[in-house]
Amino acid sequence: MELSLSTRIQGEHTVLEVGGEVDVYTAPRLRERLIELIDAGATQIVVDLGRVDFLDSTGLGVLVGALKRLRAAGGGLSLVCDKEPLLKIFRITALDQVFPLFATVDAATEAGPAA
């Protein structure tokens, strides 16, 4: 399935809903969208991975890149993910210790500014 991206504002947060496959071919589009959002002034971004059915190292690299950019600008990025196969990827790579991970978008936005 192709990558789908849609953005909405929820309170202080910009929520980027990602769907489909994030891999070495599609990840550059995710990177571009995140950079556009950051350049447009978003500081608290929630990336909702709820409809992602494939995520590889390239996609993870893009997410870490955005996290670093946001932190450097005093903002933050959190992830929404409740699917076990994806959570396992975060555990294996130890990125579960790098990203704030939430089960729902509401939980992510209610947690306040992301780390």
Partner: peptide, 24 residues
Amino acid sequence: LPPEELAKESLTDEALTVGVGFAL
């Protein structure tokens, strides 16, 4: 890569992706 390296500023996106790919 160990977790403490992953979020470091000095790590390039390419190096991070390669390290994460191998960890996977």
